[in-house]
Amino acid sequence: MAVADQDTAVRTGLVTRVFIYGILLVFAAFYLLPLFVMLTNSLKPLPEITGGNMMALPDTWTFEPWRQAWSSAQIGVEPTGLKPYFMNSILMVVPAVAISTMIGALNGYVLTKWSFRGDKIIFGLLLFSCFIPFQIVLIPMASVLGKLGMAGSIPGLVLVHVVYGIGFSTLYYRNYYAVFPTELVRAAMIDGAGFFRIFWRILLPVSGPITVVCVIWQFTNIWNDFLFGASFGGQTQPMTVALNNLVQSSTGVKEYNVHFAGAILAALPTLLVYIVAGRYFVRGLMAGSVKG
């Protein structure tokens, strides 16, 4: 009797599992298909694309489209490739992510462990900034950047993204630190640690998971931003704007293979961030909820 029960249990388990894995495989293939198309076509010479099957593997494998996209394709009027714009993006993203994460962590620390009159209202206003659509602030932002003399420069873009980023980064850290035991902060106060030392020595060392979440979030958002880059980038436009120019501006033949390669190049950093830190991403998202 018991043995029979166990048998059925195992068999149902197997059937269900095959079913689940089957569905998962179908979906995975579905999501990977675009990447497959982009990758194979970026490695073909142009005639193979225009004259043949988009889905086929290349007959002749070539890295030429990648080289062109990176260093010699026509972007707007200059044949520079995406390289300088990639650098612009890096120079914009790294400080913007670092600064907005740092400010978010400090905000979260103050809002949870050094509560003051009106802290709830301030947090509410910061949260509000998460929901303001980009388009609304374009004109005021342009005038502010102009007054600061930062229009059309990388520092200007960094400022814009930091201002937009601290809403989310504060939200992340506030929720994370809200469940961090206040008794630890009190113990450190008695031990003689000051405001910054408590932050640096007690809270920050255990903030790894939420920092990963925050960095991934900010990195992908800022890297992928197009509107601010196009509006305030001036001569120092980021990768997204350059990619658009690459795809839109070619007057002659559309070089699909170069476009594919360029698109992958533009997506590569965010992909890399996910692969390296993705494990911690899920862990960090869950951290607040299970610790309670």
Binding site: P181, E183, L184, R186, A187, A188, M189, I190, D191, G192, A193, R201, I202, P205, V206
Partner: peptide, 18 residues
């Protein structure tokens, strides 16, 4: 608190986890 020359033991122990 740090200038009162007191020491405190908390209910949750409050040991620094890191």
């Amino acid at each position: 608190p740090s200038k009162r020359n007191i020491a405190m033991v908390f209910q949750s122990y409050a040991l620094y986890p890191n």
